[in-house]
């Protein structure tokens, strides 16, 4: 395989003096190098260099993982809880949350750009559970992306958006229907309000964008306390579920 790579490179650049054989390194070595780079901005930059680098720099082997079963915990980059993974992550990291079981998530504050992804085929397979007595499962101060996850709240809200840009793609947000339905909302956004938090961490373009997401239970899908409003709502009524697309943005 190494030979093939060399051959290809030679065909392309026969007599270049600046030729550097970094692309002759095998995938493991290049990934090892990328692992030393901070995700923002360097790893995202390397992803733009060429197809091969893109594949390797965005490879799931460089992600952090949350696993509940103890057998993986000895591997590097594997954490027993979402809280631990979030606090260990570098800005821009992706955290893959293993499917199966229920991950407890109570008032986890995310104050650096992160991407949280569920490890299952479908969002139902990875559940974050916010138990009674917590305000929210996840609280967002910074830009963040959620994908392929189910977030369930027994009381309180699933996602509390304080500032930054929050992207929610292919998720399920559920609030327990009984008994205090009227107290809970799947998404609460306080961005732009007069809170101390939003003035301390001043970010431009606070917004929430939701795509292909099921939102079930709660008094209303989105409650805004700040100056953002619900916009561009689209809904698809599938046979069994209702899927939402919308933005919560300033006017």
């Amino acid at each position: 395989m190494e030979e093939q790579g060399k051959q290809k490179k030679k065909d392309k650049k026969p007599l270049s003096s600046s030729f550097c054989p970094i692309n002759n390194l095998d995938d493991g070595c290049l990934m090892h190098i990328f692992n030393f780079l901070s995700p923002i901005p360097d790893r995202y930059n390397t992803a733009l260099v060429c197809h091969r680098w893109c594949h390797l720099a965005c490879h799931p082997r460089l992600w952090l993982r949350v696993e509940q079963s103890a057998k993986y915990l000895s591997e590097p980059g594997v954490f027993p809880s979402i809280e631990k993974a979030v606090s260990a992550a570098r800005p821009g990291d992706t955290i893959l949350i293993a499917s199966g079981g229920r991950h407890l998530a109570s008032n986890i504050q995310i104050n650096k750009p992160l991407c949280l992804i569920g490890g299952g085929e479908l969002p139902d397979e990875t559940t974050l559970l916010c138990s009674r007595g917590s305000d929210s499962a996840l609280e967002f101060i910074s830009t963040c992306k959620l994908a392929n996850l189910t977030v369930k709240a027994e009381l309180g809200c699933c996602l509390l958006h304080r500032s930054g840009r929050l992207t929610i793609d292919s998720c399920i947000l559920q609030c327990e229907e009984n008994p205090l339905d009227y107290l809970s909302c799947p998404i609460i956004s306080t961005a732009g309000g007069n809170e101390a938090v939003s003035s301390a961490v001043k970010t431009k373009g606070d917004r929430v964008s939701v795509s292909q997401t099921r939102i079930e239970g709660g008094a209303k899908a989105v409650l805004t306390n700040g100056d953002l409003t619900l916009q561009q709502v689209r809904v698809i009524y599938a046979r069994t579920f209702v899927y939402f697309w919308f933005d919560v943005d300033s006017q």
């Binding site: 923002i40 901005p41 750009p113 910074s142 830009t143 930054g164 970010t203 431009k204």
Partner: peptide
Amino acid sequence: LRREHAWAYEGV
């Protein structure tokens, strides 16, 4: 690709 990674560049 830049669009796909845009979420990470917000505020940077």
